[in-house]
Structures are given as C-alpha cells and as structure tokens.
C-alpha cells in the first residue's frame, strides 16, 4: 500500500485529526508570571491594610500599587508582542463572553488599572500627596476629586482590590486549565495553583522592599502559608495526573520522569518552594534577620513554574499519546 495513503488515513500528522496549536514562546510565561505577581500584590496589600486598619507606613510600601501598575503593563506588553493580529486587540472590548476565560481576563485586566490607581492614591502619605499635587499642574482639581473619592471609599476599594486580585490570579491559571488539547493544563487545580503561586511571589516582591517590622512579619507568615498551599496543590495536580487516564499519564511523565523533570524538581519544588518554606519557618521561629535570598528564590521558582507549565503543556499534545 502506498505509505502516503496510510499516512492520510491512520497517521496523527493529518492536521484534521489532532488540533494544530500555536506554540507560545517566552512572552506568555512572562505575562502569566507578572499577572500572578500583581494579583498577589493586590490581594496582600489590601488584606494587610484591612487587617491592621492602618495604611502602609514606609514610602516603599506606599509605592507598591504604582509599581504593580508598571508590572502589569510590562506583562501586557509581553502579551501584546505574542499577538498575531495586534490591531485587533480592541475587539476584546466590544463584547463580553461569559464562558470564555479570555474575555474574562481582558475585562479583569481593564479593571485592575483603576483599582490599583485608587488603592495607591488613597494610601499615600500627606507629604507624598503634596509632592504629587505639585507635579500634576493643571490636573490638580481632577486629582483632588479622585483622591477625595479614594479616601472616602477606602474600605470598599480595598475589598474590590482583593477580589479583582484573586480573580486575576485564578484567571492566569484557568486560562490554561480550560484548554483540553493541552494534557498537562487541563486540570481544575490550575486556577487555585496559580493564585497560590501568585500570592507567594507577590509576598516575595513585597518582602524585597522596605516595610515596617509588623508588616514584614505578617507577610512572611502569609508567604509561608501560600507556599504550603501551593505545595499541596501541586501534589493534588500530580496525583490527579498520575491516577488519570493515559492522556494524563503522558502529561505527568513530563514532570515526573521526562523532559522537564529536573527543572521542575530543582527550580520549582526544592529551590522555589521547599527551601524558602524552611527558611521562612526558621526566620519566624528563631527571629533571624531576614535575607533577600528567600524572596529571590520564591520569585525564581514562580517564574520557573509558569515557564515549565507552559512549555511542558505544549510538549504534551495528543501526538505523544500511545
């Protein structure tokens, strides 16, 4: 029989049989990482202020919402680079599709900006407000009105920020989780996992800047908690894959005994989660001076997790299935 004929009827290379999927490069992991990071920062800053009933005391702490705006813009820039038809972006905002995570994401991203801006402006000290007032010049009255609104609605804004942050974090994972053609991604755990990872990386970023003592301690505790939850969710994800059907087994193999195994265990599980967890616990229990290396490891681990999940997911298409 002509091999070509066999190929067309039996082979997996027929584009009509397996879906052809676009391969993502570095842009998407960067976007997912920064998105998760900003989600974590939003949740943590709002939670910290609601818990303490006091605004951030250090200049660095007050600046973080604005830093987050910069980071999410960087992430969206990376995403924009990945788009095939860049001028069509506006179409996202012509409709809302309740069943599409992409549509949810596009709209969440739009809400992130004003929420972060209000959160940041309302948290500024008097000195910083004066400085900002002098800078904006003619827009002064507008700034005053926005500021007044941000002050008056401080608590609702913080609650909104927490909700939007959580939504952003879950969505970065859910985006992958709903793609059934990628075996590794197709899990309901992805959303919570990426949120937990976002919270721990967000805490790590906040721990890199100068905060007051109390805030630092609370964040270390929350960071530890988030890392613990993340480890548990990873275990759930892997157990689910291992005990799943052959498609899930193929996906599990990439992390448990294949191409991405060493990176996953070394950079994510040991270096990015287990070691920082121990360092955090030791810091809390023995009152040791904090080190920047702990948050650095968490950030590296968080980025590695996004990169590996994206890469390993794309590695596991149906073509690998027996």
């Amino acid at each position: 029989m002509n091999p070509q004929l066999v190929e067309i009827t039996h082979g997996r290379t027929n584009p009509g049989i397996d879906p052809v999927l676009h391969a993502w490069g570095w842009e998407v992991p960067v976007y997912l990482f920064l998105g998760g990071l900003v989600a974590g920062v939003m949740v943590l800053l709002a939670a910290l202020e609601l818990k303490r009933r006091a605004k951030a005391t250090t200049p660095a702490g007050q600046a973080m919402p604005f830093v987050a705006i910069g980071l999410i813009s960087l992430g969206m820039g990376a995403l924009f680079l990945d788009l095939a038809h860049k001028v069509h972006v506006y179409r996202f905002y012509l409709s809302f599709e309740a069943t599409s995570p992409m549509s949810w994401g596009a709209w969440i991203l739009m809400i992130v900006y004003p929420v972060l801006l209000l959160q940041g402006l309302g948290g500024l000290s008097d000195g910083a407000r004066g400085w900002l007032r002098a800078k904006v010049g003619g827009l002064g009255t507008l700034l005053d009105r926005v500021q007044a609104f941000a002050d008056a609605k401080r608590r609702p804004i913080l609650w909104t920020s927490m909700a939007v942050g959580a939504g952003l974090g879950v969505y970065t994972g859910l985006l992958l989780g709903t793609l059934s053609a990628r075996l590794l991604w197709n899990s309901a755990v992805m959303g919570p996992l990426f949120l937990a990872s976002g919270v721990s990386t967000g805490a790590a970023l906040l721990l890199c800047v100068k905060l007051d003592h109390e805030a630092h301690h609370t964040l270390v505790r929350w960071d530890t908690l988030a890392i613990g939850v993340e480890l548990a969710l990873l275990a759930v994800l892997l157990l689910g894959l291992v005990t799943g059907g052959s498609a899930q087994q193929v996906a599990a193999d990439t992390l448990l005994g294949g191409r991405y195994t060493p990176y996953f265990w070394s950079l994510v599980v040991v270096g990015g989660l287990a070691v920082p967890l121990v360092l955090n616990v030791v810091e809390m229990r023995r009152g040791l001076r904090p080190t920047l290396l702990t948050p650095a490891l968490v950030l590296i681990g968080g980025f590695a997790l996004r990169t590996l999940v994206v890469a390993a997911g794309q590695y596991t298409s149906f073509g690998l299935m027996p």
């Binding site: 060493p262 070394s266 040991v270 070691v275 121990v278 030791v282 040791l288």
Partner: peptide
C-alpha cells in the same frame, strides 16, 4: 542540562540553608 549542574544548584541551596540557619549568612 547535566547531572552535575543540578547537583551544584543543590549545593548552593544546601549552603544557603546551612548558612542561614547557622546565623552565618
């Protein structure tokens, strides 16, 4: 992508754990 490279990543992490918990970082 080599055994030794991953081992040395571990050496760094182990050294960090030791130094920090020993108060020598």
């Amino acid at each position: 992508e080599d055994w030794m490279v991953f081992e040395v990543i571990g050496v760094f992490l182990g050294g960090l754990l030791g130094a920090y918990t020993g108060g020598r970082l």
